[in-house]
Computed example of a mutant assay.
Amino acid sequence: MTTVNIPTSESIPVAPLKIIALDSCKSMGDKVNDYIVDSRHSQVNQNDHTLAFLGYEADNYLANAVCPRFGSGEAKAVIKESIRGTDLYILVDVTNREISYNLCGNKTFMSPDDHFQDLKRIIAASNGKAHRINVIMPYLYEGRQHKRSKRESLDCALALQELSNMGVDNIITFDAHDPRVQNATPIRGFDNFYTTLQFIRQFLYTEKDLKIDKDNLIIISPDEGGMSRSIYYTNVLGVDMGMFYKRRDYSTIVNGKNPIIEHQYLGRSIENKDVFIVDDMISSGESILEVASELKKRKARRVFIAATYGLFSEGFDKFDKAYEDGIIHRIYTTNLSYCSQELLDKPYYECVDISKYIALIIDTLNHDTSVDKILNPTTRIQELLESFRNGNLK
């Protein structure tokens, strides 16, 4: 295991660390715990002075907590060990669709609403006992319903306010659909982290024959909403950028949204270039595959897709066909949302592991030190690029 390099030995934690990983996030919680255990053992061994803090160096930071259900489908949270005075981090993946429970004898899969309710149950069980409560919710619950048009609910803002009112001190998320929703809770901590460094690292490790220059690689934003994300990739990689504009039919609504009539491309020629499409999520995949098809029509060499969240809400058939037809070369998504074994086994899929990143964030916040370097990874990206170009990337 690679040690997480966390330079926090000169500061004292705000409180003993405890982590609760809900069933939706068990695998991620185990990895994060292992990284922090390994890091803190290393910190203690490397420093002559004693890190005088009760429970600082431990073999496990995971607290035992469950949300059992009654036969009627109702539930409760039970924390099976003391968390009094701890700096508590609760991990939840509201997109995990493989967790089920029995409802009147029938197997029922948990929805995002169910996961959010379990999160609130854990918070309720720990309130008044933990020194500080922090929620790590990679996929921000109801993040796609972040603004109101006409007579609509404003679900994401309501959820954030509910967590705030329950006593949550900090909310940590990744690549929020619209981070401005944090304005709903202006006096609470809200950190929105990006995974650019992790994607670029995995991209460089996987695609050994890449040529990263303006003649061979171009970044594509699949819509105007992802422009800022693509601009950052463009600047740190030193390549050009293009984007697609979605023409929609605003006279009708299909599955809760206005259908797309046409994707119009704006940007430089992509002929004989590798194309890297970056987006925040793949839901049904219909839109991003249409963009990939348009790029191949414009004679793109290879099409790579990177999305923080791979939901694949309508299965993999269309992606399998796109791969077989040569439309896409590879898809990258993170393990911040549930990844089924079927997805992990796909020949065109590459999973970007974010567990070490989360461990770094937790340990940094537990020491109450700055996250500026985590939020701005430009220097580290440039070091990676230099190593890649020199042929000594490790």
Results as ranks from 00 to 15, higher is better:
93 D>I: 01
134 N>R: 11
316 F>T: 01
383 E>K: 15
9 S>H: 12
349 Y>C: 10
58 A>D: 14
42 S>D: 12
14 V>D: 00
370 S>L: 10
379 T>S: 15
127 N>R: 15
66 V>Y: 11
240 D>H: 13
263 H>S: 13
296 K>H: 04
266 L>P: 06
23 D>N: 11
70 F>G: 14
360 L>V: 07
340 S>L: 02
286 E>D: 13
168 V>N: 02
119 L>I: 00
131 H>W: 02
73 G>P: 11
166 M>D: 13
324 E>M: 04
106 N>E: 11
129 K>P: 03
256 G>E: 08
328 I>F: 02
165 N>K: 14
21 A>D: 04
52 A>S: 15
230 S>T: 04
206 T>I: 02
62 L>A: 05
110 M>N: 09
242 G>M: 05
169 D>H: 14
110 M>F: 04
218 I>M: 04
210 L>M: 14
337 S>M: 05
137 M>D: 06
181 V>D: 00
371 V>I: 15
171 I>D: 02
133 I>W: 08
64 N>S: 15
4 V>P: 06
314 E>D: 11
337 S>P: 04
285 G>P: 01
275 V>Q: 00
89 Y>T: 03
329 H>E: 15
145 Q>P: 05
271 E>I: 10
387 S>V: 05
94 V>Y: 03
273 K>P: 01
196 T>Q: 13
337 S>E: 12
316 F>W: 08
191 D>I: 04
225 G>K: 07
178 D>T: 01
122 I>M: 03
162 E>Y: 06
288 I>D: 03
285 G>V: 01
174 F>Y: 08
279 D>I: 02
8 T>G: 09
250 Y>G: 11
81 E>Q: 15
170 N>G: 11
123 I>Q: 11
217 L>K: 01
319 F>S: 10
142 E>S: 14
340 S>Q: 00
350 E>H: 07
189 G>F: 09
157 A>G: 15
244 F>T: 10
271 E>L: 09
153 S>A: 15
150 K>P: 05
219 I>R: 08
274 D>G: 00
48 D>F: 07
21 A>Y: 03
159 A>Q: 05
19 I>L: 00
364 T>P: 01
211 K>W: 08
116 F>D: 02
373 K>H: 14
112 P>F: 01
181 V>Q: 00
214 K>H: 08
318 K>V: 10
175 D>C: 09
99 I>F: 00
307 A>T: 09
210 L>T: 07
259 P>W: 04
1 M>H: 13
208 K>D: 02
317 D>C: 10
314 E>I: 03
76 K>H: 11
78 V>N: 10
5 N>Q: 13
283 S>Y: 04
320 D>M: 04
31 K>T: 09
203 F>Q: 08
61 Y>V: 03
340 S>K: 07
213 D>P: 05
187 I>R: 12
114 D>T: 05
160 L>P: 05
315 G>D: 01
394 K>Q: 13
386 E>Y: 08
173 T>I: 04
196 T>H: 06
246 K>N: 12
105 G>R: 07
45 N>I: 09
49 H>Q: 10
43 Q>V: 13
356 K>Y: 03
238 G>C: 00
327 I>M: 00
173 T>H: 00
24 S>P: 05
328 I>M: 05
329 H>K: 10
230 S>N: 07
194 Y>R: 13
231 I>W: 09
266 L>I: 15
376 N>Q: 14
172 I>H: 00
